[in-house]
Amino acid sequence: MRAITAVAALVAVVALPSPAAAATSAVTCQYIVNSYPYGFTASIDILNSGPRLDGWSLRWSVPEGTELGSVWGARMTQPTPSEMTATNVVWNSSIATGSRVVFGWTARAATSIVPTDITLNGAPC
Rank of each mutant, 00 (worst) to 15 (best):
R2D: 15
I4Q: 15
V7F: 15
A8K: 13
A9F: 08
L10V: 14
L16W: 00
P17L: 01
P19M: 01
A20W: 06
A22L: 10
A22Y: 08
A23Y: 05
S25L: 10
S25G: 10
A26I: 08
V27N: 09
T28W: 06
T28D: 12
Q30G: 05
Q30P: 01
Q30A: 04
Y31Q: 06
S35P: 05
P37A: 13
G39D: 12
G39L: 12
F40E: 10
T41R: 12
I44K: 02
D45L: 14
N48F: 04
P51K: 12
P51C: 06
R52G: 05
R52K: 14
D54H: 07
D54G: 13
G55A: 01
S61A: 15
P63W: 03
G65P: 08
T66W: 07
W72Q: 13
A74G: 02
M76T: 04
M76W: 09
P79G: 05
T80H: 02
T80Q: 04
S82Q: 04
E83A: 09
M84I: 09
T87H: 00
S93L: 13
S94V: 14
T97C: 14
V102Q: 08
F103K: 08
F103W: 10
F103G: 09
T106E: 13
T111S: 13
T116M: 07
D117H: 01
I118E: 01
T119Q: 07
T119A: 04
N121M: 07
A123T: 13
A123M: 09
P124G: 08
C125D: 02
